[in-house]
Nucleic acid binder design. Sequence first.
DNA 1: CCAGACGTTGTT
DNA 2: GTCTGG
DNA 3: CCAGACGTTGTT
DNA 4: GTCTGG
Length: 281
Amino acid sequence: MCGRFTIRTPLAALAARFLFDDLGEGLAPAAGDALRDADGGLRPRWNVAPTQPVPVLRAGPAAGADGPARRRLDLLRWGLVPSWAREPGDRAVGARLINARGETAHARPAFRDAFARRRCAVLADGFYEWRRDGRRREPFHFRRPDGGPVALAGLWARWRPPGADGPPLETCAVVTTHANAVVADIHDRMPVLLDDDGLARWLDPAFGEDPAPLRALLVPCPSTDLVAVPVSSWVNDVHHDDPRCLDPPGSAPPPPPGPRPRRGGRPAPAPPEQRLLFPDL
DNA sequence: CCAGACGTTGTT
DNA sequence: GTCTGG
DNA sequence: CCAGACGTTGTT
DNA sequence: GTCTGG
């Protein structure tokens, strides 16, 4: 679950909603300017897939004498690459770790360290789940009744290229849990949606590394927090990233005949975009 | 000890 | 890095 | 998560 | 069937 989602809310609006400091005193002063230029780094998205940059909320630099800890908002690659991975594209670990089970992540070698010290929240305004009916995959979009953004519990990692040449690669995974009553008809798992209180605890290093209180946060959100909307199978194709993803079912045109251009053969161009809005962590 | 995995999902 | 299996 | 590929040789 | 790419 949680292998696809939407994020149409501009980063500046996400900052206004989530980027208050740990005392809830409002937008951190440093955030305004940094975010003003940042919206170009994340156009509205209707079909966010693993390996792509996603907006991630983390605890800022540790609280010091000069003030309380602040939050930071960055774009991280979705698909957790542990620090010990040989290559980001490694067979077992590369970009495969897009979800972490809330029930077990604290104990898993691949997630243990992140669970204790590198927790985050992936910001979205809805997520997709597919109902499987034989060969059919029927997509549904889940979102808050008011359409507002949600904070998905996440874990992150930093991978450094050998020899310390090139920038570090920061990646993340979304924590999953049992489906609540709204999701259960479609699927048996769902991402963990954190309310403001749970979010503050999940992100705060001072909340501790003891798994038990943290695991208590990783439960299904109340069913009243989500509505299920059946959508067009247009969203099934990851290349379709436009408003038609949220159209009602049955409106997708038939798949065009003929093969697509093949993989391989040509060199891979575009390097992955990743943006650290506060690169001092 | 060293070598190899390290994960989730869904499907059967 | 750390755990598991052999 | 779903869609689509699933390969090697030799040439530029 | 299974893996990779997005």
